[in-house]
Design a protein around this nucleic acid. Structure first.
Length: 560
RNA sequence: UGGGGCGUAGCCAAGUGGUAAGGCAGCGGAUUUUGAUUCCGCCAUGCGGAGGUUCGAAUCCUCCCGCCCCAGCCA
């Protein structure tokens, strides 16, 4: 049983699974077919992950299959790069579509035939009205629309015109094919919706073969029917389209009768999951690309170091319902930490180094101390770290005038250096401007390993690296892309967090970190989970912070 | 003022007539060589509101209030 299958068995209940289960029990379906239908006009984000997990998850859980189908009906917006990225990201998330990779464009010929079928049965017509005229005659939310003057053309004329549309005789926008339904319907989608429009554009897959392309409404349900999709699961904004979806299925000789179900899309605080806005962030240079670790894209999360299993677990926990909701990004971070705590090995790294000199430690001497790789997993083994006279500790771990609750290092206090010795700060060395540049300390040789034979305790344990053999690295810290929990999408540029990326140019890492594999997660003790960025190389190490550790001290100190 | 949906804790979310699951956050406390992890405890007399039906209502009925989506030849 694969990991994903195991997760599927533990999957929660929701109204869609209830429907699927009931359809199986009633015999309505013998097996289940779902599909994930992305439009290749951008990269997948965590909102898509919810849909992917739902569709592939249900298929696995109920013993059916899930198709990956590209909804590529608008060549003016779609690109091969996106197709490739989407395939890569779905696979990375942990799902396998096997042989079931499809494109709506695979069905263009069949869709065209069905359009002619609607014309022949008097249920579709070619409309010569301009876009403006159509808008004007569509009515409003409260007023019915009016029939097009071209609505009652003969079947012959409609067929002739539609064939000439296909032949490329007319310019973009000259005519459309419309379903003949009801211009007075309260549901605007039923007011003679457009089925085909003229688009002289090159398609990533069909090239220049077509000059007319089916609309979403005409392509989607019929593609589902062709593929034998039983449950066509989409987001709430398509609820209004369901009557049209059903109308087309009823009026066309399609090979199966799929049904559409809708759920609420995911929203996350402090970010934006609008493909339009994400595209603008990339194109406007607000981020470094689709895979910028600050982006909520799967490519960005991957680069940031978020494991796919954590994304799946997150999706499982948020559930599936029909109420609009915005999940606190803190819940996502919790799940990431939970997963990384179990899997990431521990290392020491000093982000903002402060030099300390152990005055009573002999010059030139060095010794090794043993450190465990994972406190909760003995099989992860141990490693040796060199302890010397000159070390670096975290600047934040020292305060010259500490508040009462601060129990790290300050003048005269004793703390433990993890896996090494107790030290006491004896003197603070400052530069001309008064900044602390070095600490002079003494160590207690009897405390090797971190315990005092006399049983005395210290409150704090600090992480450290040796000045001599630690390796320099760039560390990139990420903060939310938006300062507001619920950013205003209309003015997103003004709400961008100016501190979403913090680059630390001169961190110092314990030497073992120089051998980290790309993207391999590691915990920098007391700080957070990190992984090497693809920019990293043996001569220039670069680490990304995936997520920080829970920081109770930050809360206490902020509270004063 | 048309059509379609949705309202259960600060945030997600179970619940489908029998007396409000779980998770996140928060707050206490224990353990701790990561102020981490782990563990224990607390956290809705209440389910948008008001009526009604019923022995019994978050669940059924009526009215009201609030929020979201729809007037692309986007998906």
């Amino acid at each position: 049983m694969s990991v994903v299958e195991k997760e599927a068995r533990e999957a929660g209940q929701d109204f869609i699974r209830d429907i699927v289960r009931a359809d199986l029990e009633s015999g309505r379906h013998k097996s289940i077919v779902t599909r994930f239908p992305p439009e290749p006009n951008g990269y997948l984000h965590i909102g898509h992950a919810k849909s992917i997990c739902l569709n592939f998850g249900i298929a696995e859980e109920f013993g059916g299959h899930c198709n990956l189908r590209f909804d590529d009906t608008n060549p003016t917006k779609e690109e091969q790069e996106y197709i490739d990225a989407i395939r890569r990201d779905v696979r990375w998330l942990g799902f396998d579509w096997g042989e079931n990779l499809f494109y709506a464009s695979d069905y263009f010929e069949k869709l065209y035939e069905w359009a002619e079928h609607l014309i022949r049965t008097g249920k579709a017509y070619v409309d010569d009205q301009s876009q403006e005229e159509m808008r004007a005659t569509r009515g409003t939310l409260t007023e019915p629309g009016t029939n097009s003057p071209f609505r009652d053309r003969s079947v012959e004329e409609n067929l002739d015109l539609f064939r000439r549309m296909r032949a490329g005789e007319f310019p973009n926008g000259a005519r459309v094919l419309r379903a003949k339904i009801d211009m007075a319907s309260g549901n605007i989608n039923m007011r003679d919706p457009v089925l085909y429009r003229i688009l002289h554009a090159e398609h990533p897959r069909t090239g220049k073969k077509w000059t007319i392309y089916p609309s979403y409404d005409f392509a989607h349900g019929q593609s589902d029917a062709i593929e034998g999709v039983t449950h066509s699961i989409c987001t709430l904004e398509f609820e209004d389209h369901r009557p049209l979806y059903d109308w087309l299925i009823e009026n066309l000789p399609v090979p199966s009768q799929p049904r559409q179900y809708e759920f609420a899309r995911l929203n996350l605080t402090h970010t934006v999951l609008s493909k339009r806005v994400l595209t603008e962030l990339v194109r406007g240079g607000h981020v470094a690309g689709w895979d910028d670790p600050r982006m909520p894209t799967l490519a960005g999360l991957r680069r940031r170091g978020v494991p796919p299993a954590a994304i799946r677990e997150f999706v499982r926990r948020i559930g599936v319902a029909k109420a609009n909701s915005t999940v606190d990004v803190g819940m996502f971070e919790f799940v990431i930490r939970e997963h990384l705590n179990r899997t990431a090995q521990r290392r020491m790294a000093v982000l903002r180094p402060l030099k300390i000199v152990i005055e009573n430690y002999p010059e030139g001497r060095c010794e090794e101390v043993e450190a465990v790789n994972h406190p909760e997993d003995p099989t992860a083994g141990t490693r040796h770290i060199r302890f010397c006279r000159e070390l670096f500790i975290e600047r934040d771990d020292f305060m010259e005038n500490p508040p009462k609750k601060f129990f790290r290092l300050s003048p005269g206090t004793e703390v433990r250096l993890r896996y090494a010795y107790f030290i006491t700060c004896r003197e603070v060395v400052k530069d001309a401007t008064g900044d602390v540049v070095e600490l002079r300390c003494v160590y207690d040789p009897t405390t090797k390993g971190g315990n005092a034979p006399d049983g005395r305790k210290v409150k704090a344990t600090l992480h450290w690296v040796s000045a001599m053999d630690s390796v320099p690295a760039e560390v990139r810290l990420y903060n939310p892309l938006f300062t507001q929990p619920d950013p205003d999408v209309a003015n997103f540029a003004t709400e961008l967090n100016p501190n979403s990326l913090e680059v630390i140019a001169d961190a110092r890492l314990e030497p073992a970190l120089a051998r980290s594999k790309s993207n391999e997660p590691v915990q920098f003790e007391r700080q957070g989970y990190f992984c090497p960025d693809p920019d990293s190389s043996p001569d220039r190490l670069v680490f990304n912070r995936t997520v920080g550790l829970r920081d109770t001290w930050a809360k206490v100190s902020a509270a004063g």
